[in-house]
């Protein structure tokens, strides 16, 4: 991370320049995809902290996103709360849920932990659905766009800088956390819990912290998603969303923040790429409905390919290329 070879500095500068230039060059639709990638990046970094660094399996990510989105949505709907209440409230909800999601981890490991977070996902989704039907919003909740000093955030161009700044802040927060005592404790419990305990690390507290921090960031991402879309519906948070986030950290590369970003970009762009590709193929003219199915199939196939052939993910591939160049 810390080596500042000229190559790395140039790459980083080009990336920063591209990120700044994007809103001036790209169309609205492209910028919308960029915003989705930024939102996914925030969620993927949160999951990476939990699974990639602290080693705690979670299949409840969509539930946490839903919790954040619904906190923002319900507050906006019931007490007309502005976003500067909605977003912190969502993060707080996430932190509280993080304690609940994390509690099973004190007793359970491996698949049992995965299953308990999966069960909590269904609980959150049920509560959200129940709210929708009880209050008569069976199709979802509408949220007004946030207003700052009379300026309404409603189009992708206005949102892009906001989301970019938030994503960068989350990245910096994650990087600093990982270099702190907490981050080293996560690495220790990831490797072997008994040794971590012998080193004087409070294993239970460290695990709960990982769940709380990860869940708070995730719920915040969910709330941002709600404001960005202007609309919340429980339909948007199916188990498939959890799988997508898990796929992001696998495809990107476990145990790497850069991996979370790359994975988020890859998984977000994939359906658009498939749609574009199927438009080119002459045979699929009448199969508009099956694009959805092709997404699923391609997604499963790519995930399997990474799990079986490239467990290091995109970051692993990059490192190998970089390593080869170094030896020459």
């Amino acid at each position: 991370m810390s080596d500042l070879s000229p190559m790395r500095v140039v790459t980083a500068l080009v990336a920063i320049a591209a990120l700044i230039a994007l809103p001036f060059l790209a169309s609205g639709a492209t910028l919308d995809i960029a915003n989705q990638i930024l939102l996914a990046t925030i969620g993927a970094i949160a999951l990476m902290l939990l699974t990639g660094f602290a080693g705690q399996i979670s299949l409840g990510h969509a539930g946490l996103l839903a919790a954040g989105a619904f906190t923002a949505g319900i507050l906006a709907q019931e007490i007309a709360a502005p976003f500067w209440i909605g977003i912190p409230a969502a993060a707080l909800t996430g932190a509280l849920l993080g304690v609940i999601f994390g509690l099973p981890s004190l007793r359970l490991r491996g698949i049992y932990l995965a299953v308990s977070t999966l069960a909590l996902h269904f609980l959150v989704v049920y509560v959200g659905g129940e709210y929708e039907t009880r209050r008569g919003f069976s199709t979802g909740i509408l949220i007004d766009p946030p207003v700052v000093f009379g300026f309404e955030f409603w189009d992708p161009v206005a949102w892009y800088p906001v989301l970019l700044v938030v994503a960068v802040l989350v990245w910096l927060l994650a990087r600093n956390l990982l270099r702190s005592r907490t981050g080293r404790a996560w690495a220790a419990i990831h490797d072997t819990e008994p040794v971590a305990a012998a080193l004087g690390i409070n294993v239970a507290r460290t695990k709960l912290w990982a769940f709380v921090i990860s869940s708070a960031i995730t719920a915040m991402a969910g709330a941002l998603f709600a404001y960005y879309r202007g609309f919340v519906s429980i339909e948007a948070f199916s188990l498939f969303v959890t799988i997508q986030y898990v796929a992001m950290i696998i495809i990107g590369g476990m145990g790497s923040l850069l991996g979370a970003v790359l994975g988020a970009a890859f998984v977000t762009i994939l359906p658009h790429a498939i749609e574009a590709a199927s438009g080119v193929l002459p045979s699929s003219g009448g199969l508009a409905g099956s694009i959805f199915a092709m997404n699923y199939a391609a997604f499963g196939l790519i995930m399997i390919a990474f799990l079986v052939f490239e467990p290091g993910g995109l970051v692993g591939i990059l490192r190998r290329i970089g390593g080869k160049r170094g030896t020459r």
Binding site: I57, G110, I243, I250, A297, G300, P311
Partner: peptide, 24 residues
């Protein structure tokens, strides 16, 4: 011989693949 997580995720990925193929 792979980790517990990798094996579970492979089955999840298989499930997604099958869902897509069945609709196709």
């Amino acid at each position: 011989g792979e980790s517990v997580l990798a094996a579970i995720l492979t089955t999840i990925a298989l499930g997604i693949l099958l869902r897509g193929l069945i609709v196709i």
